[in-house]
Design a protein around this nucleic acid. Structure first.
Length: 874
RNA sequence: GGGGGCUUAGCUCAGUUGGUUAGAGCACCUGCCUUACAAGCAGGGGGUCACAGGUUCGAGUCCUGUAGCCCCCACCA
């Protein structure tokens, strides 16, 4: 029945084998069983360009813990995996690859490019999935999805058409964020701002037909080429006479008006702003209010256009230099001052964004945001920790329309068609649209959609929506979403409004948010810093369980964590501890023992004690997992397994196990196996591999720990009297060890222990424990005189005497006892102070009052024992 | 400018609705190769819980303020 375990804990020798076993047995694939409650999670789909990093490792460890826990609790658990096509990132990667071959996108055309991209996906897209398996992720791989697969594409088209028909998707010329490197528009959420040192150039614009000048300041003199007005505040007395006048744009000679607009702040700078509607979001607004023309002065890659021959072909920064120089030479430059400002950069490539007026597709957000705010406010969706709902509300309440079109090829092509003949626009799912007006073949929009547009549909598109599939009916809405706080706006909020709009339901009820994994110095792990730690290397050195344990331990929701190999080492040591405890157990289990049952009547106090404590851990683990307190849950198991089971219980029962026979031996075997197996089950969601490997070796029922039942609190295993008895014994043993260590008595030197106690039954039966664990040569109960040359150890209401051969240093003894007395008196004082306080007794809960009463009783007894001892010493 | 977080042992961090003498890992000191484990065992030192007030019978935990560090959002040209 039982099997052997290897002498050494070597995770690499069994992790892959066990994963294959689970997979082959179909344990990852749930059935749509109407007698069970479903539990569904969708994976945050990693990019196909990605390699598994620590962020993935954390995210997926947390998800796997929940999935395995729920599965063992009897839920029909679906953890649905998949990958994201990651339009910008992937396209950039392929373009880069092509550049090395000397090929451009234009050379091979759209179809050729897409072919390459799909090849790339086939070749590398599955890489991260294999890496997730290494981690032990119990995803249902039979349901693996891809944001660009047929089903997801159908969902995307469906949504686009529906929103267009509802008027919530529109096409228009707006100012958007343009990345001159990626050559595409990006959404507001994709812009990252960073502080940059810059300058304020004070420039004067001549007033037409006058000697007067208007002075203004700008951080971007090169945009002067596109100025179509200058604005002042309507109530600014300094400039009243200029409103409506015409200025002559320096270097360009264009005549532009002075307009009045509230946007201009009188107190900032000179109170005059140049207006470049095509290159600044605020100026765009001003321009729209005053009907100013849009003049785009830059090409896609941020070089000055041919319209300005003096600067044509220069990039933004060269043009800036040249223009400043020309302004200076022309006498237009007044002064230059240093000025720090925030500059928007592309979150993918870091290039400075060029705001640009451009015709793009947008989602009108206002009406979609409303129900999304309500769902969180009313508790249909809960963020853990709660504080993140503030970020969410702030973002949702101030949301602007979402620019969804991208000038990329890798992605969902916008299902809009134009008729070149009559200019008709049709939005349809039909790929070969003909013009409803003139019957001509229509031309599809060249652009693709923002990657996040398809990710926003992930919780339902992956389950079959817009079709009412069996999976969709059974598994949707999902339950928990686990993700980092860095993508709440990108992804979580968009899933929420999307799902509410299209399915009418919240996509999930709980969002478990975790922080970032940082390096040992607290820095973000990044490629450029080269401080990233590769999870796969950690797995191959220490095992997946050690990595998972490290990520789960001491991690609280929403907080960042530091990662260091020292911590993984500690986790590996814990795994090793479990391994050895299991080896010890296996060595001492005999084939003639019945492990199917536990006969309470034959149990000894230490058995009941460990069962009682185990039972408590079971209860607490479930409670904490139900509250998503994963770090606390696993910490409790760690403490129990190491401190209680290994350090005490196994040591306590060694004499019975080594006796090899008898009822007491069988009871010890049964208890040990019961508690160890149960603890392994508790630990399985956190450390799936080692727990399975050991569980398979122990006597067990069933095929895999993975599909066994998660332990549940059992009232029959609650033994308070035995808990009390054993804690008294353990306290006394610790006190003896402590005294011996203080006196530097080596364990090899045994000493008899004389116990003076008002109640022998609190020690009787534990004599063997003192012999084995407190180096006692023997134990006897003191009736009369205390032994000569003995040191005394006070524990509770009892005194233990340890005769040592040397003369006892009475002075030192007295000093030590006096110190202990002081401590006891301090405790008594504090307990009395509380108990004599009528407010405390009447207002504090009974439980707390009783704790103080017990404390008073305990330390009063201790004090009496110490006083007696001091008296005896003379 | 708005919002949020952090500050607990030398280091990294837990501390779940306020309630026993504030914990862990690592590091450090002492003693142990005790036949599961030296990736270990036993023992030990080390904290006025950032600071100042307040609420409470009771505060690391709640409130207010201060300081330092960090993050997010907005972005006055």
């Amino acid at each position: 029945m039982k099997k052997e375990l290897a002498t050494k804990y070597d995770p690499s020798s069994f992790e892959d084998r066990l994963y294959a076993m689970w997979s082959e047995n179909g344990y990852f694939t749930p059935l749509r069983d109407d007698t069970k409650t479903p539990f569904t999670m969708v994976i945050p789909p990693p990019n196909i360009t990605g390699q598994l990093h620590m962020g993935h490792a954390l995210d997926n460890t947390l998800q796997d813990i929940l999935a395995r826990y729920k599965r063992m609790c009897g839920f029909s658990t679906l953890w649905l995996p998949g990958t994201d096509h990651a339009s910008i990132a992937t396209e950039a990667k392929i373009v880069e690859q092509m550049r090395k071959e000397g090929v451009t996108k234009e050379d091979i055309g759209r179809d050729g490019f897409l072919e390459r991209a799909w090849d790339w996906n086939t070749k590398y897209g599955g890489r991260i999935i294999e890496q997730l398996k290494k981690l032990g992720s119990s995803c249902d791989w039979t349901r693996t999805r891809f944001t660009l697969d047929e089903g997801c594409s159908e969902a995307v088209k469906e949504v686009f058409v529906r929103l267009y028909e509802k008027g919530l998707i529109y096409r228009g010329e707006r100012i958007i964020n343009w990345c001159p490197h990626c050559l595409t528009s990006i959404s507001d959420a994709e812009v990252e701002y960073e502080d940059q040192a810059g300058h304020f150039w004070h420039i004067r614009y001549p007033v037409k037909d006058s000697d007067e000048f208007v002075e203004l300041a700008t951080t971007r003199p090169e945009t002067l080429l596109g100025d179509t007005a200058v604005a002042v505040n309507p109530s600014d007395e300094r400039y009243q006479h200029l409103i409506g006048k015409t200025l002559v744009l320096p270097l360009v000679g264009r005549e532009i008006p002075v307009v009045a607009d509230d946007y201009v702040e009188k107190d900032f700078g000179t109170g005059v702003v140049k207006i470049t509607p095509a290159h600044d979001p605020n100026d765009f607004e001003v321009g729209a209010r005053h009907g100013l023309p849009l003049i785009n002065v830059m090409t896609d890659d941020a070089h000055i256009t041919e319209d300005y021959p003096a600067y044509a072909g220069m990039d933004r920064y060269e043009a800036r230099k040249a223009i400043v120089k020309d302004l200076e030479e022309g006498g237009f430059l007044v002064s230059v001052e240093d000025h720090a400002h925030n500059v928007g950069t592309c979150y993918r490539c870091g290039t400075t964004i060029e705001p640009r007026a451009s015709k793009q597709w947008f989602v009108a957000m206002k009406t979609l945001a409303e129900p999304a705010i309500k769902a969180v406010r009313e508790g249909d969706i809960r963020f853990i920790p709660e504080r993140f709902d503030k970020n969410y509300f702030h973002w949702m309440e101030n949301i602007r329309d979402w620019c969804i079109s991208r000038q990329l090829w890798w992605g969902h092509r916008i299902p809009a068609f134009y008729c070149d003949d009559c200019g008709e626009l049709v939005v349809t799912k039909d790929a070969t649209a003909t013009c409803p007006k003139c019957g001509k073949q229509m031309r599809q929009d060249e652009d693709t959609l923002d990657t996040w547009f398809s990710s926003a549909l992930w919780p339902f598109s992956t389950l079959g929506w817009p079709n009412e599939t069996e999976d969709y009916k059974y598994f949707f809405p999902t339950n928990t979403l686990v993700t980092g706080y860095d993508i709440i706006t990108f992804w979580v909020s968009r899933m929420i409004f999307s799902s509410l709009e299209y399915t009418g339901k919240a996509p999930f009820n709980t969002v478990l948010i975790h922080g970032l994994v940082r390096d040992a110095q607290g820095r973000k792990m990044s490629k450029s810093l080269g401080n990233g730690i590769d999870p796969l290397e950690i797995i191959s050195t220490y095992g997946a369980d050690a990595l998972r344990f490290t990520l789960a331990t001491g991690n609280s929701p929403g907080n960042d964590m530091r990662f260091s190999s020292e911590r993984v080492e500690a986790s590996r040591n814990f795994a090793n501890k479990i391994w050895n405890a299991a080896r010890f157990t296996l060595m001492n289990l005999t084939d003639d023992t019945d492990f199917a049952s536990l006969d309470v009547s034959s149990l000894r106090p230490e058995d009941k004690w460990v069962l009682s404590l185990y039972n408590k851990v079971v209860k607490e683990t479930r409670e904490n997992l139900d509250k998503f307190e994963i770090g606390i849950a696993v910490g409790g198991i760690y403490d129990f397994l190491w401190d209680i089971l290994c350090d005490w219980y196994i040591e306590l029962i060694k004499p019975r196990l080594f006796a090899k026979e008898g009822e007491s031996n069988k009871a010890a075997q049964q208890t040990l196996n019961y508690v160890l197996s149960g603890t392994l089950k508790l630990l399985h969601p956190f450390m799936p591999f080692i727990t399975e490997e050991i569980w398979q070796a122990l006597p067990h029922m069933g095929d895999s720990i993975m599909v066994s039942e998660y332990p549940a609190y059992d009232e029959a295993l609650n033994f308070p009297a035995d808990e009390k008895y054993m804690s008294g014994v353990i306290e006394a043993i610790k006190a003896v060890r402590n005294r011996r260590a203080e006196m530097n008595v080596p364990p090899s030197r045994k000493a008899h222990i004389f116990i003076k106690t008002p109640d022998r039954s609190s020690f009787e039966g534990s004599e063997i424990f003192f012999e084995k664990l407190a180096s006692a040569a023997g134990v006897s109960y003191l009736e009369g005189e205390e032994p000569e040359n003995a040191v005394s150890i006070v524990s509770g209401d009892s005194v233990l005497y340890l005769p040592v051969n040397e003369m006892v240093d009475t002075e030192a003894e007295r000093a030590r006892l006096t110190k202990e007395l002081e401590n006891a008196e301090k405790m008594i004082l504090s307990a009395n102070a509380k108990l004599n306080n009528a407010d405390f007794v009447s207002r504090a809960p009974e439980k707390v009052v009783n704790i103080e009463k017990d404390k008073l009783e305990k330390f009063t007894a201790l004090k009496a024992s110490i006083l007696t001892e001091l008296e005896r010493l003379g």
